[in-house]
Amino acid sequence: MPTTKSAAKRLRQSIKKRLHNRIAKKIVKTSSRKALETAAEKNFEAAETQFRAAVAKIDKAGARGVLHKNTAARRKSKLARAYKAAVEKAKKS
């Protein structure tokens, strides 16, 4: 437990920030998953919208420091590759 008033305040602040960051990361993961699922369902217009929303959320998390900028870039790249593959697979079958 914190000893000083300033340490207690820092603990309160870090708890708040941790919760906020966890929520933001969960939103990024959920939106990415939804984009890929929609592409697999052959709903290409909705999939495009979901993909763009996921990329925007990743960008926002990277800009706010929830994710490191390189991590955000890597996740966008990975999502784009997976999205493209899912669309190609759905179009073939």
Rank of each mutant, 00 (worst) to 15 (best):
S14W: 03
R52I: 14
A46I: 02
A72I: 00
F44L: 11
K5F: 10
T38F: 03
A56I: 07
A80R: 03
R52E: 15
I27F: 05
R12F: 08
A86S: 11
R22A: 10
S14M: 12
V87W: 05
E48W: 01
A72H: 02
N70E: 15
E48P: 02
K34I: 10
R22C: 00
A85M: 11
A85Q: 13
Y83T: 07
K17I: 08
R22K: 03
K57D: 15
R75C: 04
K17Y: 02
N21L: 03
K5W: 04
L67Y: 04
H68F: 08
A24Q: 05
M1C: 10
R64M: 11
N21K: 04
K69Y: 04
A63T: 00
A56M: 13
I23C: 05
S93M: 03
Y83P: 07
H68E: 14
Y83G: 11
A63C: 01
S6M: 11
Q50E: 15
A47P: 04
G65H: 03
A40N: 01
I23Q: 11
K16M: 13
L11T: 05
A72P: 00
S31N: 09
A24W: 00
I23M: 09
A85H: 06
E41R: 08
A61R: 01
I27D: 15
A53F: 12
D59P: 00
E48F: 03
T3C: 09
I58Y: 07
R64W: 01
K17Q: 12
E37F: 07
E88H: 07
V87M: 14
K69D: 04
N43H: 05
P2A: 15
R10T: 12
A63Q: 05
I58H: 06
K42Y: 02
T4N: 13
A86F: 00
L19M: 11
T30V: 12
A82D: 12
V55C: 10
N21V: 06
R64F: 07
A35E: 06
K78A: 11
Q13N: 07
